[in-house]
Design a protein around this nucleic acid. Sequence first.
DNA 1: ATAATATTGTTGCAAATGCAACATGTAATT
DNA 2: AATTACATGTTGCATTTGCAACAATATTAT
Lengths: 153, 153
Amino acid sequence: MAKAQHYIDSIYYDLELTSHAMKALGNHLFEHLNLGLTPVEHAALDTIFCNTGICQRDLAKLILKDRANTGRILASLEEKGLITRFVDVKNNRLVRKMGVTEKGHKVLEQVRKKIEAYVKSISVQFSEEEIDQLQQTLRKFRENILELANMKI
Amino acid sequence: MAKAQHYIDSIYYDLELTSHAMKALGNHLFEHLNLGLTPVEHAALDTIFCNTGICQRDLAKLILKDRANTGRILASLEEKGLITRFVDVKNNRLVRKMGVTEKGHKVLEQVRKKIEAYVKSISVQFSEEEIDQLQQTLRKFRENILELANMKI
DNA sequence: ATAATATTGTTGCAAATGCAACATGTAATT
DNA sequence: AATTACATGTTGCATTTGCAACAATATTAT
């Protein structure tokens, strides 16, 4: 109960700080390595790659953006030729689906290679098991939070 | 090395998700409990409380906002009568310092009480030690990231 | 068959956020 | 003494982001 008595000491703040630092590093890397896309564009591209046939709304939930912004991100990716959007049928409903193009695949591979080095340099001090443990804890913690939110407290 | 091959599996994403969920819960609570201030205003207020005599720029760094926004947040807090801003001297330089008013203290206490219950309900599934461990790990991880950023990779 | 409901994507607008330039005043250097 | 460098806070503007309304289409209910 001495815990989280002040904002600065709260887990909320630690999450903010860590997420903020991680995002800053990501922005820096993507800009500095001249990857030709932004972190959020890469997030969308890779998420599409991992979820073929996903619709825009579901993608929005995964990348934590609203529908409007997701549409804008997709427009940018399409303009860059990294994805194609086409009309398909889902539950007998017309839906604009999307797929990663050849160019998109290449970019994903390129990003993966270029970033691997930095992931490794983080892993120098953090073992794979430690990272794994941290991710699991975050997941468990998150589920707890989402439960609270769903209770509509 | 199977780790973080895709965005969805990365620690980056887990941090985004968890931080996002936490922020959503915070927004929900502050709005629903009619606390009369936003989460970021509370963050600023409590940070000022914990760092008497802090200047605006240093506060900005702590609450992760830029100077402009910090100024706006402070203007709002001042308008609500939760802080006072006054000109003081720091290293023989004129600086606008700030302090928490009586009303500000009361609000902080009120928020602390009202939120305590929810912190507890989270702690039901997460022991104090687990939360503590998570915070420590996040801190260590963050320091690692900041080192990388400082290397200007 | 018609109306109500649900799902999807887009558009317009408002709010939040940050960057860069600026204004002010102090310390340091020459 | 004058100039340069530094620290602080503010203002203007552009970008990002999200919300709410809308359009289009399909499903379900009456």
